[in-house]
């Protein structure tokens, strides 16, 4: 009951030419405060849709979202978001991009205090020397660092990450995962991350939520990741537990993701095939 974030029966239906199309159906999840949860699944399965509903950037068809005891409606700065593309405003410097949100959230603070918050978080993500550069002058990885600083600087109640490292090369991705997990440990912030990278999910998360394929995607299973923290990328590779979890995840993505979450229920949409036939991608 003390879940920090609670999603109950979250459902998203899009209108389409062939009639209403159910993307996500009855998504239920409870996340205690401070937990790092990854949602993993095939591209297009609807995992981003779930995240965007929590962010308030997509409307919820039915069901509800409760964050810290309050039902959410619409977007707000209480949820820090890092998108796959950094979505910085290109006419502003890194500092100005971070300040835009800070001015909005900490409007009671003095000018100096607000500037300090921005400088602190930009330094923490390693951009102390690049604060006054515009996005075009920064590398893709640096831009994403600004995105992370921008999200943390607002002291949000939770963090939503939509494949935040998807556009980066693997070395940069490792670096940024480290930046993220350090900040997460320092702030103990509840985090939901969408990813399709099995190793990323295992390295960062306390739990991994596996989503079945759409349409009518839902939760297939939830995997606990009881690896001790702080995790060392090389050390966890030697744990048998890590390989067992990895094998389970890959097996889920290759086989079980294609089955309906609750195939014993009768099919509801006319557009879906009979329940006994597993949908193959």
């Amino acid at each position: 009951m003390s879940a920090h974030l609670e999603l109950f029966n979250l459902t998203k239906v899009y209108p389409s030419k062939k009639g209403p199309q159910t993307i996500v159906r009855d998504f239920n999840l409870q996340i205690p405060k401070g937990e790092f949860v990854s949602i993993i699944g095939h591209s297009g399965c609807g995992k981003s849709t779930v995240l965007m509903m929590v962010a308030g950037l997509t409307t919820v068809t039915s069901g509800g979202i409760i964050l810290a005891g309050r039902e959410l409606s619409g977007p707000g700065p209480d949820r820090g978001i890092v998108f796959q593309s950094p979505s910085l405003l290109p006419w502003m410097t890194a500092r100005e991009n971070v300040m835009l949100g800070i001015n909005q959230v900490f409007f009671t603070a003095t000018e100096q205090e607000r500037a300090q918050i921005a400088e602190y978080y930009l330094s923490v993500v390693g951009l102390a020397d690049f604060m006054d550069k515009r996005p075009a002058e920064l590398s893709q990885g640096m831009r994403q660092r600004v995105g992370i600083a921008r999200a943390f600087a607002l002291k949000p109640k939770m963090l939503l990450l939509d494949e935040p490292f998807g556009m980066l090369d693997s070395l940069t991705r490792y670096e940024l995962q480290q930046v993220l997990i350090d900040l997460w440990r320092r702030n103990q912030i509840t985090t939901v991350m969408v990813t399709h990278d099995v190793d990323e999910a295992l390295y960062l998360s306390d739990r991994v939520v596996c989503m079945t394929d759409g349409p009518e995607a839902g939760i297939g299973e939830i995997l606990n990741v009881p690896l001790p923290r702080p995790r060392d990328r090389k050390a966890i590779l030697e744990l048998p537990e890590y390989h067992r979890l990895r094998a389970t995840l890959i097996e889920f993505l290759e086989v079980r993701a294609h089955h309906r979450p609750n195939s014993s229920n009768s099919p509801s949409g006319a557009a879906t095939p009979p329940a006994s036939v597993p949908v193959s991608a």
Binding site: A55, G56, L57, G74, P75, G76, P77, R79, I81, F83, S85, S87, L89, L100, G101, Q104, V105
Partner: peptide
């Protein structure tokens, strides 16, 4: 993306 930034920050 830019408009979403504005929405999230409630500008």
């Amino acid at each position: 993306d830019y408009l979403n930034v504005a929405r999230v920050l409630k500008l």
